[in-house]
Design a protein around this nucleic acid. Structure first.
Lengths: 235, 235
DNA sequence: CGGGTCGTTGACTCTCATCAACCCTCGTGG
DNA sequence: CCACGAGGGTTGATGAGAGTCAACGACCCG
Protein backbone atom coordinates (compact mmCIF):
# COMPACT_ATOMS: atom_id res chain seq x y z
CA UNK A 1 0.00 0.00 0.00
CA UNK A 2 2.79 2.32 0.92
CA UNK A 3 4.44 1.58 -2.43
CA UNK A 4 1.27 2.41 -4.23
CA UNK A 5 0.69 5.78 -2.62
CA UNK A 6 4.33 6.69 -2.97
CA UNK A 7 3.76 6.40 -6.71
CA UNK A 8 0.99 8.97 -6.47
CA UNK A 9 2.61 11.67 -4.37
CA UNK A 10 5.94 12.19 -2.70
CA UNK A 11 5.55 10.95 0.85
CA UNK A 12 7.35 12.20 3.93
CA UNK A 13 8.81 9.87 6.54
CA UNK A 14 5.93 10.87 8.76
CA UNK A 15 3.40 9.96 6.07
CA UNK A 16 5.01 6.57 5.67
CA UNK A 17 5.05 5.79 9.34
CA UNK A 18 1.43 6.91 9.68
CA UNK A 19 0.51 4.45 6.94
CA UNK A 20 2.43 1.68 8.60
CA UNK A 21 0.85 2.21 11.99
CA UNK A 22 -2.67 2.31 10.60
CA UNK A 23 -4.69 -0.36 12.38
CA UNK A 24 -6.10 -2.87 9.93
CA UNK A 25 -7.62 -6.27 9.81
CA UNK A 26 -7.09 -8.97 7.23
CA UNK A 27 -9.78 -11.23 5.91
CA UNK A 28 -10.26 -13.83 3.19
CA UNK A 29 -13.30 -13.63 0.98
CA UNK A 30 -14.29 -16.58 -1.24
CA UNK A 31 -15.46 -16.09 -4.84
CA UNK A 32 -18.91 -14.44 -4.98
CA UNK A 33 -18.52 -13.42 -1.36
CA UNK A 34 -19.64 -9.91 -0.50
CA UNK A 35 -17.03 -7.34 0.43
CA UNK A 36 -19.66 -4.62 0.63
CA UNK A 37 -23.42 -4.68 0.25
CA UNK A 38 -25.60 -1.95 -1.17
CA UNK A 39 -27.65 -0.27 1.52
CA UNK A 40 -25.25 -1.04 4.34
CA UNK A 41 -23.97 1.82 6.48
CA UNK A 42 -20.26 2.47 5.97
CA UNK A 43 -18.04 1.14 8.70
CA UNK A 44 -14.70 0.62 7.05
CA UNK A 45 -12.59 0.95 3.93
CA UNK A 46 -11.43 -2.03 1.91
CA UNK A 47 -8.20 -2.61 0.03
CA UNK A 48 -7.45 -5.67 -2.09
CA UNK A 49 -4.29 -7.43 -1.01
CA UNK A 50 -4.64 -10.28 -3.50
CA UNK A 51 -7.36 -11.49 -5.85
CA UNK A 52 -9.84 -9.75 -8.12
CA UNK A 53 -13.15 -8.15 -7.17
CA UNK A 54 -16.00 -6.41 -8.95
CA UNK A 55 -18.51 -3.71 -8.16
CA UNK A 56 -22.08 -4.26 -9.26
CA UNK A 57 -25.60 -2.92 -9.00
CA UNK A 58 -28.97 -4.49 -9.66
CA UNK A 59 -31.94 -2.80 -11.33
CA UNK A 60 -35.45 -2.92 -9.97
CA UNK A 61 -36.17 -5.66 -12.52
CA UNK A 62 -33.32 -7.75 -11.18
CA UNK A 63 -30.83 -7.25 -13.98
CA UNK A 64 -27.25 -7.06 -12.81
CA UNK A 65 -24.63 -4.65 -14.12
CA UNK A 66 -20.97 -4.89 -13.20
CA UNK A 67 -19.56 -1.36 -13.06
CA UNK A 68 -15.88 -2.05 -12.48
CA UNK A 69 -13.24 -4.71 -11.97
CA UNK A 70 -10.58 -4.32 -9.30
CA UNK A 71 -7.11 -5.73 -8.88
CA UNK A 72 -4.66 -5.99 -5.98
CA UNK A 73 -3.76 -2.58 -4.62
CA UNK A 74 -7.13 -1.05 -5.45
CA UNK A 75 -9.06 0.59 -2.66
CA UNK A 76 -12.51 -0.66 -3.48
CA UNK A 77 -14.28 1.29 -0.85
CA UNK A 78 -12.79 4.67 -0.19
CA UNK A 79 -16.28 6.08 -0.02
CA UNK A 80 -16.62 3.98 3.10
CA UNK A 81 -14.70 6.70 4.88
CA UNK A 82 -16.79 9.62 3.73
CA UNK A 83 -20.23 8.53 2.55
CA UNK A 84 -22.87 7.10 4.80
CA UNK A 85 -24.63 4.35 2.89
CA UNK A 86 -23.14 2.03 0.27
CA UNK A 87 -24.75 2.58 -3.11
CA UNK A 88 -23.53 -0.66 -4.71
CA UNK A 89 -22.17 -4.13 -4.00
CA UNK A 90 -18.57 -5.25 -4.11
CA UNK A 91 -17.96 -8.98 -4.52
CA UNK A 92 -14.93 -11.19 -4.89
CA UNK A 93 -14.31 -12.49 -8.39
CA UNK A 94 -11.55 -14.86 -7.30
CA UNK A 95 -10.55 -15.78 -3.73
CA UNK A 96 -9.51 -12.47 -2.18
CA UNK A 97 -7.33 -11.41 0.68
CA UNK A 98 -8.78 -8.13 1.84
CA UNK A 99 -7.46 -5.48 4.17
CA UNK A 100 -10.11 -3.59 6.08
CA UNK A 101 -9.41 -0.29 7.80
CA UNK A 102 -11.77 1.40 10.19
CA UNK A 103 -13.69 4.31 8.72
CA UNK A 104 -12.66 6.70 11.44
CA UNK A 105 -8.99 5.78 11.19
CA UNK A 106 -9.00 6.67 7.52
CA UNK A 107 -10.82 9.93 8.11
CA UNK A 108 -8.33 10.86 10.83
CA UNK A 109 -5.42 9.92 8.63
CA UNK A 110 -6.62 12.17 5.85
CA UNK A 111 -7.00 15.11 8.20
CA UNK A 112 -3.63 14.64 9.86
CA UNK A 113 -1.72 13.74 6.68
CA UNK A 114 -3.24 15.66 3.78
CA UNK A 115 -0.61 14.40 1.35
CA UNK A 116 -1.87 10.86 1.90
CA UNK A 117 -5.38 12.15 1.43
CA UNK A 118 -4.43 13.54 -1.94
CA UNK A 119 -2.78 10.28 -2.94
CA UNK A 120 -5.99 8.43 -2.20
CA UNK A 121 -8.06 11.10 -3.86
CA UNK A 122 -6.11 10.53 -7.05
CA UNK A 123 -7.30 6.93 -6.93
CA UNK A 124 -10.88 8.11 -6.60
CA UNK A 125 -10.44 10.40 -9.60
CA UNK A 126 -8.99 7.63 -11.74
CA UNK A 127 -11.84 5.35 -10.71
CA UNK A 128 -14.18 8.07 -11.90
CA UNK A 129 -12.39 8.28 -15.21
CA UNK A 130 -12.75 4.55 -15.72
CA UNK A 131 -16.44 4.74 -14.89
CA UNK A 132 -16.85 7.39 -17.57
CA UNK A 133 -15.17 5.19 -20.13
CA UNK A 134 -17.47 2.34 -19.17
CA UNK A 135 -20.50 4.56 -19.78
CA UNK A 136 -19.12 5.21 -23.25
CA UNK A 137 -18.46 1.51 -23.72
CA UNK A 138 -21.95 0.29 -22.97
CA UNK A 139 -23.63 3.38 -24.40
CA UNK A 140 -21.91 3.85 -27.73
CA UNK A 141 -20.01 0.77 -28.85
CA UNK A 142 -21.36 -2.38 -30.49
CA UNK A 143 -20.99 -5.81 -28.94
CA UNK A 144 -17.65 -6.58 -30.57
CA UNK A 145 -16.00 -3.32 -29.59
CA UNK A 146 -17.37 -3.52 -26.06
CA UNK A 147 -15.74 -6.84 -25.39
CA UNK A 148 -12.55 -5.92 -27.19
CA UNK A 149 -12.35 -2.76 -25.14
CA UNK A 150 -12.83 -4.62 -21.89
CA UNK A 151 -10.02 -7.01 -22.82
CA UNK A 152 -7.72 -4.09 -23.67
CA UNK A 153 -8.46 -2.38 -20.37
CA UNK A 154 -7.89 -5.48 -18.29
CA UNK A 155 -4.77 -6.42 -20.22
CA UNK A 156 -3.13 -3.07 -19.66
CA UNK A 157 -4.19 -2.86 -16.03
CA UNK A 158 -2.91 -6.35 -15.32
CA UNK A 159 0.37 -5.49 -16.94
CA UNK A 160 0.75 -2.19 -15.09
CA UNK A 161 0.08 -3.98 -11.82
CA UNK A 162 2.73 -6.57 -12.68
CA UNK A 163 0.20 -9.39 -12.64
CA UNK A 164 0.77 -10.62 -16.19
CA UNK A 165 1.51 -9.62 -19.72
CA UNK A 166 -1.10 -7.53 -21.47
CA UNK A 167 -1.12 -9.85 -24.48
CA UNK A 168 -1.58 -13.05 -22.52
CA UNK A 169 -3.47 -13.33 -19.26
CA UNK A 170 -5.94 -15.39 -17.37
CA UNK A 171 -9.36 -13.79 -17.28
CA UNK A 172 -11.13 -15.38 -14.31
CA UNK A 173 -14.60 -14.27 -15.35
CA UNK A 174 -17.51 -16.38 -16.53
CA UNK A 175 -19.12 -15.32 -19.77
CA UNK A 176 -22.10 -14.25 -17.72
CA UNK A 177 -19.89 -11.86 -15.74
CA UNK A 178 -18.41 -10.50 -18.95
CA UNK A 179 -21.96 -10.00 -20.20
CA UNK A 180 -22.88 -8.11 -17.03
CA UNK A 181 -19.81 -5.91 -17.49
CA UNK A 182 -20.60 -4.84 -21.03
CA UNK A 183 -24.40 -4.83 -20.97
CA UNK A 184 -25.02 -7.88 -23.15
CA UNK A 185 -26.41 -11.39 -22.64
CA UNK A 186 -24.15 -14.37 -21.93
CA UNK A 187 -25.28 -16.01 -25.16
CA UNK A 188 -24.23 -13.05 -27.22
CA UNK A 189 -20.91 -12.75 -25.41
CA UNK A 190 -20.23 -16.35 -26.32
CA UNK A 191 -20.90 -15.72 -29.98
CA UNK A 192 -18.77 -12.59 -30.04
CA UNK A 193 -15.85 -14.32 -28.33
CA UNK A 194 -16.07 -17.07 -30.89
CA UNK A 195 -16.12 -14.53 -33.68
CA UNK A 196 -13.11 -12.68 -32.23
CA UNK A 197 -11.29 -15.99 -32.25
CA UNK A 198 -12.25 -16.54 -35.87
CA UNK A 199 -10.87 -13.11 -36.75
CA UNK A 200 -7.60 -13.98 -35.00
CA UNK A 201 -8.05 -11.03 -32.67
CA UNK A 202 -7.78 -13.31 -29.65
CA UNK A 203 -6.95 -16.93 -28.90
CA UNK A 204 -8.78 -18.63 -26.07
CA UNK A 205 -7.86 -21.62 -24.00
CA UNK A 206 -10.33 -22.03 -21.20
CA UNK A 207 -10.26 -18.64 -19.56
CA UNK A 208 -6.79 -17.81 -20.73
CA UNK A 209 -6.72 -15.06 -23.35
CA UNK A 210 -3.88 -14.52 -25.80
CA UNK A 211 -3.79 -11.39 -27.89
CA UNK A 212 -1.58 -12.08 -30.92
CA UNK A 213 -1.67 -8.51 -32.25
CA UNK A 214 -2.15 -5.92 -29.54
CA UNK A 215 -2.17 -2.99 -31.92
CA UNK A 216 -4.88 -4.55 -34.06
CA UNK A 217 -7.08 -5.23 -31.06
CA UNK A 218 -6.78 -1.71 -29.69
CA UNK A 219 -7.60 -0.37 -33.15
CA UNK A 220 -10.83 -2.28 -33.57
CA UNK A 221 -11.74 -1.64 -29.94
CA UNK A 222 -11.13 2.09 -30.23
CA UNK A 223 -9.02 1.75 -27.09
CA UNK A 224 -7.00 4.72 -25.91
CA UNK A 225 -5.33 4.22 -22.56
CA UNK A 226 -5.41 7.88 -21.66
CA UNK A 227 -8.40 7.41 -19.38
CA UNK A 228 -6.39 5.06 -17.16
CA UNK A 229 -4.01 7.94 -16.29
CA UNK A 230 -1.05 5.58 -16.19
CA UNK A 231 1.36 8.53 -16.01
CA UNK A 232 -0.08 9.51 -12.68
CA UNK A 233 3.07 9.17 -10.61
CA UNK A 234 4.33 11.86 -8.26
CA UNK A 235 3.40 15.36 -9.35
CA UNK B 1 -19.36 27.70 -2.85
CA UNK B 2 -18.80 28.22 0.82
CA UNK B 3 -22.41 27.30 1.46
CA UNK B 4 -22.03 24.13 -0.48
CA UNK B 5 -18.96 22.87 1.32
CA UNK B 6 -20.39 23.82 4.67
CA UNK B 7 -23.15 21.33 3.89
CA UNK B 8 -20.55 18.61 3.43
CA UNK B 9 -18.35 19.10 6.47
CA UNK B 10 -18.29 21.46 9.44
CA UNK B 11 -15.98 24.30 8.49
CA UNK B 12 -13.83 26.36 10.80
CA UNK B 13 -13.56 30.13 10.50
CA UNK B 14 -10.12 29.59 9.05
CA UNK B 15 -11.51 27.23 6.40
CA UNK B 16 -14.11 29.77 5.46
CA UNK B 17 -11.68 32.62 5.15
CA UNK B 18 -9.32 30.45 3.10
CA UNK B 19 -12.17 29.75 0.72
CA UNK B 20 -13.06 33.39 0.48
CA UNK B 21 -9.53 34.48 -0.29
CA UNK B 22 -9.00 31.87 -2.97
CA UNK B 23 -8.02 33.67 -6.16
CA UNK B 24 -10.48 32.94 -8.93
CA UNK B 25 -11.51 34.18 -12.30
CA UNK B 26 -14.98 34.44 -13.73
CA UNK B 27 -15.89 33.69 -17.29
CA UNK B 28 -18.99 33.28 -19.43
CA UNK B 29 -19.28 30.29 -21.72
CA UNK B 30 -21.95 30.18 -24.43
CA UNK B 31 -23.96 27.02 -25.16
CA UNK B 32 -21.78 24.32 -26.75
CA UNK B 33 -18.69 26.21 -25.66
CA UNK B 34 -15.89 24.10 -24.24
CA UNK B 35 -15.10 24.38 -20.54
CA UNK B 36 -12.52 21.62 -20.81
CA UNK B 37 -11.19 19.65 -23.75
CA UNK B 38 -10.04 16.04 -23.74
CA UNK B 39 -6.28 15.80 -24.13
CA UNK B 40 -5.55 19.21 -22.66
CA UNK B 41 -3.12 19.45 -19.77
CA UNK B 42 -4.82 20.49 -16.52
CA UNK B 43 -4.32 24.09 -15.54
CA UNK B 44 -7.29 24.92 -13.39
CA UNK B 45 -10.43 23.71 -11.69
CA UNK B 46 -13.88 24.77 -12.80
CA UNK B 47 -17.01 25.45 -10.78
CA UNK B 48 -20.41 26.27 -12.24
CA UNK B 49 -21.80 29.54 -10.91
CA UNK B 50 -24.88 29.49 -13.12
CA UNK B 51 -26.08 27.43 -16.05
CA UNK B 52 -25.91 23.75 -16.93
CA UNK B 53 -22.99 21.83 -18.41
CA UNK B 54 -22.29 18.29 -19.55
CA UNK B 55 -19.31 15.99 -19.71
CA UNK B 56 -18.85 13.92 -22.84
CA UNK B 57 -16.49 11.62 -24.67
CA UNK B 58 -16.27 10.54 -28.28
CA UNK B 59 -15.48 7.05 -29.54
CA UNK B 60 -12.95 6.33 -32.25
CA UNK B 61 -15.88 6.00 -34.67
CA UNK B 62 -17.08 9.49 -33.77
CA UNK B 63 -20.08 8.57 -31.64
CA UNK B 64 -20.65 10.90 -28.75
CA UNK B 65 -21.67 9.84 -25.24
CA UNK B 66 -22.67 12.29 -22.55
CA UNK B 67 -21.50 10.93 -19.21
CA UNK B 68 -22.99 13.46 -16.80
CA UNK B 69 -25.01 16.63 -16.46
CA UNK B 70 -23.95 19.37 -14.08
CA UNK B 71 -25.78 22.12 -12.30
CA UNK B 72 -24.77 25.30 -10.48
CA UNK B 73 -22.51 24.55 -7.53
CA UNK B 74 -20.94 21.49 -9.17
CA UNK B 75 -17.18 21.38 -9.48
CA UNK B 76 -16.91 19.98 -12.96
CA UNK B 77 -13.19 19.65 -12.96
CA UNK B 78 -11.74 18.73 -9.63
CA UNK B 79 -9.42 16.33 -11.39
CA UNK B 80 -7.89 19.45 -12.88
CA UNK B 81 -6.07 19.86 -9.59
CA UNK B 82 -4.64 16.36 -9.37
CA UNK B 83 -4.59 14.64 -12.75
CA UNK B 84 -2.39 15.71 -15.62
CA UNK B 85 -4.38 15.31 -18.80
CA UNK B 86 -8.12 15.74 -19.24
CA UNK B 87 -9.76 12.47 -20.25
CA UNK B 88 -13.04 13.97 -21.46
CA UNK B 89 -14.73 17.17 -22.61
CA UNK B 90 -16.92 19.48 -20.59
CA UNK B 91 -19.25 21.75 -22.52
CA UNK B 92 -21.91 24.29 -21.62
CA UNK B 93 -25.48 23.12 -22.12
CA UNK B 94 -26.94 26.56 -21.48
CA UNK B 95 -25.10 29.86 -21.17
CA UNK B 96 -22.80 29.36 -18.18
CA UNK B 97 -21.05 31.60 -15.72
CA UNK B 98 -17.98 29.66 -14.70
CA UNK B 99 -15.52 30.17 -11.88
CA UNK B 100 -12.00 29.01 -12.63
CA UNK B 101 -9.44 28.45 -9.91
CA UNK B 102 -5.79 27.86 -10.52
CA UNK B 103 -4.71 24.25 -10.20
CA UNK B 104 -1.94 25.02 -7.76
CA UNK B 105 -4.15 27.17 -5.55
CA UNK B 106 -6.57 24.27 -5.13
CA UNK B 107 -3.78 21.82 -4.40
CA UNK B 108 -2.33 24.17 -1.79
CA UNK B 109 -5.73 24.72 -0.26
CA UNK B 110 -6.27 21.01 0.16
CA UNK B 111 -2.92 20.56 1.86
CA UNK B 112 -3.34 23.48 4.20
CA UNK B 113 -7.02 22.91 4.94
CA UNK B 114 -7.69 19.17 4.90
CA UNK B 115 -11.28 19.61 6.00
CA UNK B 116 -11.98 21.49 2.80
CA UNK B 117 -10.22 18.75 0.91
CA UNK B 118 -12.55 16.20 2.40
CA UNK B 119 -15.57 18.32 1.53
CA UNK B 120 -14.45 18.40 -2.09
CA UNK B 121 -13.59 14.75 -2.02
CA UNK B 122 -17.15 13.96 -1.02
CA UNK B 123 -18.23 15.65 -4.24
CA UNK B 124 -15.86 13.45 -6.21
CA UNK B 125 -17.27 10.35 -4.54
CA UNK B 126 -20.86 11.34 -5.28
CA UNK B 127 -19.89 12.03 -8.88
CA UNK B 128 -18.50 8.51 -8.98
CA UNK B 129 -21.72 7.11 -7.61
CA UNK B 130 -23.72 8.88 -10.29
CA UNK B 131 -21.39 7.53 -12.98
CA UNK B 132 -22.00 4.03 -11.71
CA UNK B 133 -25.74 4.50 -11.92
CA UNK B 134 -25.36 5.76 -15.48
CA UNK B 135 -23.45 2.61 -16.39
CA UNK B 136 -26.40 0.62 -15.07
CA UNK B 137 -28.79 2.87 -16.93
CA UNK B 138 -27.28 2.43 -20.38
CA UNK B 139 -26.20 -1.15 -19.72
CA UNK B 140 -29.27 -2.75 -18.25
CA UNK B 141 -32.40 -0.70 -18.81
CA UNK B 142 -34.56 -0.49 -21.93
CA UNK B 143 -35.14 2.75 -23.77
CA UNK B 144 -38.22 3.75 -21.78
CA UNK B 145 -36.64 3.18 -18.39
CA UNK B 146 -33.43 4.93 -19.43
CA UNK B 147 -35.20 8.14 -20.28
CA UNK B 148 -37.56 7.92 -17.31
CA UNK B 149 -34.56 7.42 -15.05
CA UNK B 150 -32.74 10.41 -16.50
CA UNK B 151 -35.81 12.58 -15.90
CA UNK B 152 -36.07 11.36 -12.31
CA UNK B 153 -32.42 12.09 -11.64
CA UNK B 154 -32.53 15.56 -13.10
CA UNK B 155 -35.82 16.37 -11.39
CA UNK B 156 -34.53 15.48 -7.97
CA UNK B 157 -31.17 17.18 -8.51
CA UNK B 158 -32.85 20.35 -9.74
CA UNK B 159 -35.12 20.35 -6.73
CA UNK B 160 -32.30 19.72 -4.26
CA UNK B 161 -30.36 22.59 -5.78
CA UNK B 162 -33.37 24.85 -5.45
CA UNK B 163 -33.59 25.38 -9.20
CA UNK B 164 -37.12 24.11 -9.69
CA UNK B 165 -39.70 21.58 -8.62
CA UNK B 166 -38.90 17.97 -9.36
CA UNK B 167 -42.27 17.42 -10.96
CA UNK B 168 -42.12 20.40 -13.28
CA UNK B 169 -38.93 21.75 -14.79
CA UNK B 170 -37.37 23.06 -17.92
CA UNK B 171 -35.05 20.54 -19.52
CA UNK B 172 -32.77 22.56 -21.77
CA UNK B 173 -31.51 19.59 -23.76
CA UNK B 174 -32.15 18.74 -27.38
CA UNK B 175 -33.43 15.26 -28.08
CA UNK B 176 -30.05 14.52 -29.57
CA UNK B 177 -28.38 15.40 -26.28
CA UNK B 178 -30.85 13.21 -24.41
CA UNK B 179 -30.01 10.43 -26.86
CA UNK B 180 -26.30 10.89 -26.22
CA UNK B 181 -26.94 10.72 -22.48
CA UNK B 182 -28.82 7.43 -22.54
CA UNK B 183 -27.11 5.66 -25.43
CA UNK B 184 -29.95 5.83 -27.96
CA UNK B 185 -30.61 7.62 -31.26
CA UNK B 186 -32.46 10.94 -31.41
CA UNK B 187 -35.22 9.33 -33.46
CA UNK B 188 -35.86 6.70 -30.86
CA UNK B 189 -35.76 9.24 -28.04
CA UNK B 190 -38.46 11.15 -29.87
CA UNK B 191 -40.67 8.10 -30.11
CA UNK B 192 -40.16 7.18 -26.48
CA UNK B 193 -40.93 10.70 -25.27
CA UNK B 194 -44.12 10.61 -27.30
CA UNK B 195 -45.02 7.26 -25.81
CA UNK B 196 -44.34 8.49 -22.27
CA UNK B 197 -46.71 11.34 -23.00
CA UNK B 198 -49.34 8.88 -24.23
CA UNK B 199 -48.99 6.90 -21.01
CA UNK B 200 -49.49 10.11 -18.99
CA UNK B 201 -46.11 9.61 -17.33
CA UNK B 202 -44.99 13.04 -18.47
CA UNK B 203 -46.48 16.10 -20.13
CA UNK B 204 -44.33 18.09 -22.49
CA UNK B 205 -44.56 21.65 -23.63
CA UNK B 206 -41.54 22.55 -25.65
CA UNK B 207 -38.71 21.56 -23.38
CA UNK B 208 -40.72 21.95 -20.26
CA UNK B 209 -41.46 18.65 -18.55
CA UNK B 210 -44.32 18.09 -16.12
CA UNK B 211 -44.48 14.91 -14.13
CA UNK B 212 -48.08 14.42 -12.99
CA UNK B 213 -47.37 11.38 -10.84
CA UNK B 214 -43.85 11.32 -9.45
CA UNK B 215 -44.30 8.01 -7.66
CA UNK B 216 -45.49 6.31 -10.81
CA UNK B 217 -42.55 7.61 -12.83
CA UNK B 218 -39.97 6.49 -10.29
CA UNK B 219 -41.63 3.08 -10.19
CA UNK B 220 -41.45 2.43 -13.92
CA UNK B 221 -37.96 3.95 -14.05
CA UNK B 222 -36.70 1.81 -11.21
CA UNK B 223 -35.38 5.02 -9.69
CA UNK B 224 -33.94 4.94 -6.19
CA UNK B 225 -32.34 8.18 -5.10
CA UNK B 226 -29.88 6.50 -2.77
CA UNK B 227 -27.06 6.85 -5.28
CA UNK B 228 -27.35 10.64 -5.15
CA UNK B 229 -26.36 10.59 -1.44
CA UNK B 230 -28.68 13.46 -0.68
CA UNK B 231 -28.20 12.95 3.04
CA UNK B 232 -24.56 13.84 2.70
CA UNK B 233 -24.50 16.84 4.98
CA UNK B 234 -22.00 17.36 7.78
CA UNK B 235 -20.76 14.10 9.26
C1' DC C 1 -38.99 35.93 -45.83
C1' DG C 2 -35.59 32.46 -45.95
C1' DG C 3 -32.38 29.40 -43.82
C1' DG C 4 -31.03 26.61 -40.01
C1' DT C 5 -31.83 23.88 -36.10
C1' DC C 6 -34.72 20.85 -33.95
C1' DG C 7 -38.62 17.83 -33.74
C1' DT C 8 -41.77 14.30 -35.93
C1' DT C 9 -43.16 10.45 -38.61
C1' DG C 10 -43.01 6.28 -41.71
C1' DA C 11 -40.81 2.26 -43.88
C1' DC C 12 -37.42 -0.87 -43.57
C1' DT C 13 -33.29 -3.27 -41.53
C1' DC C 14 -30.37 -5.46 -38.34
C1' DT C 15 -28.24 -6.26 -34.03
C1' DC C 16 -28.92 -8.42 -30.09
C1' DA C 17 -32.30 -10.84 -26.83
C1' DT C 18 -34.91 -14.83 -25.92
C1' DC C 19 -35.90 -19.58 -25.54
C1' DA C 20 -34.37 -24.02 -25.60
C1' DA C 21 -31.51 -27.79 -26.12
C1' DC C 22 -27.20 -30.07 -25.66
C1' DC C 23 -22.37 -30.51 -24.35
C1' DC C 24 -18.29 -30.55 -21.55
C1' DT C 25 -15.74 -30.65 -17.29
C1' DC C 26 -15.08 -31.43 -12.76
C1' DG C 27 -16.07 -32.66 -8.08
C1' DT C 28 -18.65 -35.79 -5.14
C1' DG C 29 -20.51 -39.72 -3.23
C1' DG C 30 -22.41 -44.27 -3.60
C1' DC D 1 -14.62 -46.64 -10.23
C1' DC D 2 -18.35 -45.00 -12.25
C1' DA D 3 -22.82 -42.36 -11.94
C1' DC D 4 -24.61 -38.21 -11.10
C1' DG D 5 -25.37 -33.35 -10.77
C1' DA D 6 -24.19 -28.61 -11.22
C1' DG D 7 -22.07 -24.86 -13.38
C1' DG D 8 -20.57 -23.05 -17.36
C1' DG D 9 -20.01 -23.04 -22.35
C1' DT D 10 -22.00 -23.72 -27.18
C1' DT D 11 -25.37 -23.70 -30.75
C1' DG D 12 -29.76 -23.00 -33.41
C1' DA D 13 -34.31 -20.86 -34.33
C1' DT D 14 -37.04 -17.04 -33.78
C1' DG D 15 -38.48 -12.36 -32.54
C1' DA D 16 -38.41 -7.75 -30.59
C1' DG D 17 -36.36 -3.43 -29.76
C1' DA D 18 -33.72 -0.05 -31.50
C1' DG D 19 -31.11 1.78 -35.62
C1' DT D 20 -31.12 3.73 -40.27
C1' DC D 21 -32.70 6.41 -44.00
C1' DA D 22 -35.45 9.82 -45.62
C1' DA D 23 -38.81 13.29 -45.81
C1' DC D 24 -41.48 16.76 -43.88
C1' DG D 25 -42.95 20.13 -40.33
C1' DA D 26 -42.42 23.69 -36.70
C1' DC D 27 -40.14 27.30 -34.84
C1' DC D 28 -36.67 30.98 -34.29
C1' DC D 29 -33.79 34.64 -35.67
C1' DG D 30 -31.59 37.72 -38.62
Amino acid sequence: MERKFARRRALSADDRSALRTLPFQRQSVPPHGFILREGEPSRRCALIHSGLAYRNKTTAEGMRQIVSIHIPGDMVDLQGALLKIADHNVQALTPCEMIFIDRQAVADLILSHPTLGMAMWVDTLIDGSIFREWIVNVGRRDAHARIEHLLCELGTRFEMAGLSDRDGFDLPMTQEQIADSVGLTPVHVNRVLKSLGGDRLIQRNRRYIRIPDWQKLTDVAGFNERYLHLDQATV
